[in-house]
């Protein structure tokens, strides 16, 4: 099965949790997750951010669910890097 190694998401989130807390919580979801967060636009109660998450195998559903639990909503998936599993790792 192909592994998602990087996703770039357009997300709308409330001001709280702040950018640092938001990115840290997402990074804590995986052992090797690397999260980059760029605030694109600030509104009265919300902010639009571009989230880039990279790792060996990103659990995309869990990530979007956690974004939702922090009050954010994914507007679009702007970029993805997906890698098929190397033949040597297939058993047999």
């Amino acid at each position: 099965m192909a592994a998602v190694t990087r996703v770039m998401l357009d997300v709308l989130k409330p001001h709280q949790p702040n950018a640092l807390e938001f990115a840290s919580q997402l990074a804590d979801m995986g052992d090797d997750y690397r999260v980059n967060l760029v605030v694109q636009e600030l509104d009265d109660k919300t902010q639009s951010i571009i989230l880039t998450i990279s790792g060996q195998q990103i659990d995309f559903d869990a990530v979007t669910q956690h974004i939702g639990s922090m009050g954010g909503s994914v507007h679009s998936i702007d970029e993805v890097d997906v890698q098929s599993e190397a033949p040597s790792t297939i058993p047999g």
Binding site: L12, P14, P17, D43, D44, K45, T46, G68, S69, M70, G71, S73
Partner: peptide, 16 residues
């Protein structure tokens, strides 16, 4: 309710 209006979504299940 104000935050939900801004987010255009329900936040009932979120931390908020």
């Amino acid at each position: 309710r104000q935050l939900e209006k801004s987010m255009v979504t329900s936040l009932g299940e979120s931390a908020h």
